[in-house]
Amino acid sequence: MTELLGAEDRSEDPAPGDSPEQVSRLLDVREIYAEPAAALSPRGRQVIARFPGARVLEVGSHWNIPHLHGNEGNADRWVRVKRQTLVLGVRKSLTVRPNGRSADWIAPGTSNGCAMSCAYCYVPRRKGYANPITVFTNIGDVIDALDRHITSLGPKQEPTQCDEERWVYDTGENGDCSVDALISDNTADLIAAFRRWPTAMASFATKYVNRDLLALDPRGSTRIRFSVMPPGDSRLLDVRTSPVAERIAAAGDFLDAGYEVHFNLSPVVLRPGWEEDWTELLRHLDDVLPARVKAQAAAEVIMLTHNRQLHDVNLRWHPRAEDVLWRPEIQQAKRSENGALNVRYRNDVKREGVRRVTELVAAHAPWLRVRYAF
């Protein structure tokens, strides 16, 4: 691989305005693998300027980096790769896909992968032995595709569980927009774009409290979904994320800044004592959330889905997580929408788990409307 840009080429565009302390907790970028067009684009130059000490290495495709994705040894460096590596690419597919669960539609993502290391994350299942953030630099193409799609739909004629009045677009299916905002202005540009579309709103789930997002003025056009689980589960499984209590405590500030604030009860991991711990979490939500947050809040309940390849990778870097994630005695094979073969709880086990979670919500946080559970 060759170095793509010299140091003299890296400072033409400003870096985003996030605090250095906030970035350094998650990212100490030393290598940036970049498609040439991505590196030379305005957004690519912004990212490279953000990390001036990193080597920029040319690659032909962001999906095909043998040193990164095909290197089995990277499983032993799982977290280090996430902290020290970025990938820059140009997004080719700009398709808007129907969803109906988290959102009416899945927007073309502006990133893939994450700097955090949740042991159950589905994104690395197609990426081999490393899952750093890939930033897509053609943000203008993504916004243009969304503009065409939103315009073609016109106003929403009938309510859906996603929203009664507006079309909802998930902008962070394969990444975390709060973390992406530490790297570039992609998230800020999406939030600004959705302000211009009165018939649509953006939505993304996050496990990271990025308070710089409070200054982006969404004006009700962006829904942030804070993912929560019992703190003990989170300490084991949500590696490098914001503590659950911090996510919950931030809800009022984000609502006051103009976001709609929902919650993901996700994933629900079935293990001894799980009902008691979810009860405690729901009681905490009820105790600390302001009335104004409760009045507009809704939630998704998502039972754990896992994967054999991810199980094998986790055994290399975080085997304790697999003590609760990998339970063949109560799991079965599942073919996902994209054709991947995963494992989920057996039908009877999952059905009972969903029933118990929704009962617990009704008993301890009755104000929390469950939009869907699966």
Score class of each variant (00 low, 15 high):
A7D: 12
E8S: 14
S11V: 12
A15L: 09
V23D: 03
S24I: 05
D28L: 15
L40I: 03
S41P: 05
P42N: 05
R45P: 00
V47Q: 00
G53S: 01
R55W: 01
H67Y: 10
H69V: 03
H69Q: 09
L86T: 09
L94C: 03
N99Q: 10
R101P: 01
A103I: 02
D104L: 08
G109L: 06
G109Y: 06
V123A: 01
R125G: 13
K127E: 15
K127D: 14
Y129C: 02
G140T: 11
V142W: 09
L146K: 09
L146M: 08
L153K: 15
V168S: 05
D170N: 15
E173G: 07
D180G: 12
L182Q: 03
S184D: 08
T187C: 01
A188Q: 07
D189S: 07
I191K: 00
R196Q: 13
T199I: 06
T199C: 09
M201S: 14
F204R: 02
L216V: 15
P218M: 00
R225L: 06
S227A: 09
V228W: 07
G232T: 14
V239A: 01
P243E: 00
V244E: 08
A245F: 03
I248S: 04
A249T: 04
L255P: 01
A257I: 04
G273W: 02
W274Q: 04
E275D: 00
L289N: 12
M303E: 09
V313Y: 06
H318W: 11
R320E: 15
V324S: 04
R327I: 06
P328E: 00
S336Q: 13
E337V: 15
N342D: 14
E352F: 11
L360S: 06
H364T: 03
A365Y: 07
P366L: 08
